[in-house]
């Protein structure tokens, strides 16, 4: 256990269990949810689709933000062209009407993609609280292996059901190879 605390009772981030297989982690996540834990996070070397459901990951607002960004981009792209071609510089091009919507579609489409893409990235980073120079999970001595061959489940101290002794015992009862407390 790593301890960066200053007082007698170090503030805990949570209790972290280490697994050697994705199935072990998945099983523990399901058990933890069934036991009533809600504030938890899983760390894996590669994406495991089922984990999101298992740890009770709520719906994100990224898709909605992306949609709004896309609509905003599309509208601004179309309106920019409308303003340029109809009001600002009304030129006769090949005898076509000033408001020639088919030729506006490409820019509208590109602006939709651009705004949707930027909103998705920025929205994802913001909602994830990134960039984040410090995260207590790195206080775990072997956390670096979460990007190689180990799977971690952290039940956070912020959970209403959290109790150091109980939670540690609970995680030890799963197929964890190691259970450790991690300081905040």
């Amino acid at each position: 256990m790593t301890n960066h605390g200053t007082g007698d009772e170090p503030k805990l981030h949570g209790v972290v269990a280490e697994y050697t297989t994705p199935d072990g982690l998945l099983e523990a996540c399901n058990k933890a949810r069934a036991a009533g834990y809600r504030r938890m996070d899983a760390y894996t070397p590669y994406p495991i689709e089922e984990i999101a459901d298992a740890i009770g990951f709520e719906k994100t607002r990224v898709p909605l933000l992306t949609l709004c960004g896309g609509i905003l981009g599309g509208l601004s792209g179309y309106m920019l062209q409308y303003w340029v071609n109809v009001s600002a510089y009304p030129l006769n091009i090949g005898g076509r009407p000033l408001h020639s919507w088919p030729s506006f579609i490409i820019i509208t489409f590109e602006m939709t993609i651009l705004f949707a893409g930027i909103t998705a990235v920025v929205g994802m980073l913001t909602l994830n609280g990134l960039p984040q120079p410090y995260h207590p999970i790195f206080n775990h001595p072997r956390f670096a292996s979460a990007s190689r061959d180990r799977f971690f489940l952290c039940i956070e101290a912020a959970d209403v059901k959290f109790d150091v002794a109980d939670t540690t015992r609970f995680l030890q009862a799963t197929s964890a190879v190691d259970v450790a407390e991690v300081a905040d």
Binding site: G94, R96, P102, S103, I105, I106
Partner: peptide
């Protein structure tokens, strides 16, 4: 579909 339409429409 739109590409075909746009090119032919623009060329007229």
């Amino acid at each position: 579909s739109f590409s075909q339409w746009l090119i032919i429409w623009a060329g007229n």
